[in-house]
Design a protein around this nucleic acid. Structure first.
Lengths: 252, 252
DNA sequence: CGGACCTTTGAGTATTTTCAAATGCGGTGG
DNA sequence: CCACCGCATTTGAAAATACTCAAAGGTCCG
C-alpha cells in the first residue's frame, strides 16, 4: 500500500482522489473490496464513479428512481425507508460506513426505498453495469458481493424476528446491542456512541411510537442499564442488555 | 424445446431425468434459468445435483447446517423460520415452486434459517460452488441470480413494513393478496386456493396469535370478503381486500 | 431571549393477547 | 356404520401491552 501511495503521489494525482481510493479507505475491510489484492482493488477503483458528499437530510435516491448505482458509504449514516400506499413511512434500516445501499433495486431496476443521510456523509458511486462486468472477471469480488447481499437478507430476517415476536423492551435492547456491535466492528467504542437518528426514527424502525421509545429510555436509565444525554448513549451493562434481548423473562 | 425433448429420448435418457430438466420444468420462467437460451440452460442443468423429494414435515436444511446448496423448489411449499435464543420460532417466509431457498446462507456459509416442507415437495439441488463458476461465465444467469437475491431483499422489506406499521386486519389482508398474486403468477387461480400452512403458522409469520387469525377469518367471512372451509380459501372481493391492505380506514 | 422542534411524562383507550372452553374434523377401531 | 379420540380451530371474556392524546419540559439556533 505504501508503494501504491508513492506512485500515486509521484504521478501527481490530486490528494482528493488519492484519499478516495479503496486501498486507503478505512472501510475497505468491510466494504466491497474486502479481501481483494491490490490489482483487483485498482480495477474496482477504476469503475467507481464519483465519491459524493451527501449533506444531512438530503436524499441519495428515492423510491421509483431508475437504478444506476449502488452506493458504498464511506462516511456517515443513512436511513432507508419504504412508503405505504397511505404515505406512511417504514424505516427498513440504518446504514453506516462500509455498508452498501441500493441492493433492493437490482430486481426491477427501480429503487424500492428512499435513502436519506442522517448526517453529513460521503458515498462511493458504484455503477452497477460496470460492477457486473467486473464480477464476471473477479471471483473474489463476486464472492464478496454475494456475501453482502446475503448479509442484507439475513439482517432483514433478524428484523422480522424482532418485529414479529419481540416485545417493546426486547426490541429496543436488540436495537442498542446491534448498534453497539456494529460500532465495535468499525473500531469505535461499543459502549459509548451517538444516536444519529431521532427517537421518532428509532420508533418507526422498531414498530413502536416515539413515546414508547422515550419511556424505554427512561426505564433503562432507571434500571442502570445506560446513561443518556440527548443522543449520546453510554451502555452501562451490555451483558444484561443482551439478556433482555434474548427473552422477556428478565425484564420487569 | 421439442427438439431437445426428441434428442433426449433418442439418446435413451431415463424419463425420470428428462422430466427434471430445466427446459421442461414448468417453473423455468420464474426460476434460476429464466431468460437463458437452450445452451445455457443445458449448462445449468449439468451442475444441478439431485432433484430431491422432500416429504411433508421434513426438513430440507436446518439453522447452523453448513451451506452447500441452494434449492430451487420444483413442486410444493416450504416454510423458512428463524429461532430466537429463547427457542421461539419466527417464520420468515413461505416459499413455493419457482422460488429459491438458502440465499441467506451465502454470507457465512452456514444456514441462518430452517426450511421445512409444508406438503410433499420436490427441489433441485444447486451446488453453490458450481453455480458461482457458471455465473462468471453466463452474464444472463448472473443477472437473473442477482435479481432473485434482490427480490428476496425487497420481499423482506415488505414484510418489515407489514410487521412494523400495519394492524392485524391489514396484515392478514396483505397476506392473502400476496398469496393470491403468487398463485396467479404461476398460472393458478388467484381467487381459489388452498392454504398450505396452519393458522398457527400464518399467525407466527404475521406476528399475530392463532386466535387472531381465526377471528380475522371469521370477520372477513362475515363481511363477505371470502369463503373458507378448512384450508380452502375463496376470495370473493379481491378489490376490497386490496383496499384493506392499503389503509385501516375502510375496515371497521 | 424567543421560538421551533424534539423529547418526556401522564392518563385514558384500544388493539391484541392470554386463558379457557367449546366446536369441528379426520382417522381408527369396535 | 358409528362411536371415540386427538388435534386444529373457533369463540368468549378478562388482561396486558402499547397507543393516543395532551401537556410540560428541554435543547438548539437564530
Amino acid at each position: 500500500m505504501i508503494r501504491e501511495f508513492d506512485s500515486l503521489v509521484s504521478t501527481g494525482t490530486p490528494l482528493e482522489v488519492l484519499k478516495a481510493k479503496c486501498a486507503t479507505c478505512s472501510m475497505h475491510q468491510l466494504c466491497l473490496p474486502m479481501g481483494l489484492d491490490n490489482d483487483d482493488m485498482d480495477r474496482l477503483d477504476q469503475i467507481i464513479g464519483r465519491r459524493r458528499k451527501v449533506t444531512r437530510g438530503s436524499t441519495l435516491f428515492r423510491i421509483g428512481d431508475p437504478f444506476q448505482n449502488l452506493y458504498a458509504i464511506r462516511l456517515g449514516h443513512f436511513k432507508a425507508y419504504q412508503v405505504n400506499r397511505d404515505g406512511v413511512e417504514q424505516i427498513t434500516g440504518f446504514q453506516m460506513a462500509g455498508e452498501l445501499l441500493g441492493m433492493d433495486a437490482i430486481s426491477t431496476d427501480l429503487h424500492h426505498c428512499t435513502a436519506v443521510a442522517l448526517e453529513d456523509s460521503e458515498v462511493c458511486e458504484v455503477p452497477f453495469g460496470s460492477l457486473q462486468q467486473l464480477l464476471a472477471d473477479m471471483p473474489a469480488l463476486l464472492r464478496h458481493f454475494h456475501r453482502m447481499m446475503s448479509q442484507e437478507i439475513t439482517r432483514e430476517q433478524s428484523v422480522m424476528l424482532l418485529l414479529g415476536n419481540m416485545q417493546a423492551t426486547q426490541r429496543f435492547a436488540a436495537f442498542l446491542v446491534n448498534l453497539s456491535s456494529r460500532y465495535e466492528a468499525r473500531g469505535y467504542s461499543p459502549h459509548t456512541f451517538q444516536l444519529r437518528m431521532s427517537r421518532e426514527e428509532i420508533g418507526n424502525y422498531l414498530g413502536l411510537t416515539i413515546e414508547s421509545i422515550s419511556r424505554l429510555l427512561s426505564k433503562f436509565k432507571k434500571e442502570g442499564l445506560l446513561r443518556v444525554s440527548n443522543r449520546e448513549i453510554e451502555l452501562l451493562d451490555p451483558v444484561r442488555l443482551k439478556a433482555i434481548t434474548a427473552g422477556t423473562h428478565s425484564c420487569n
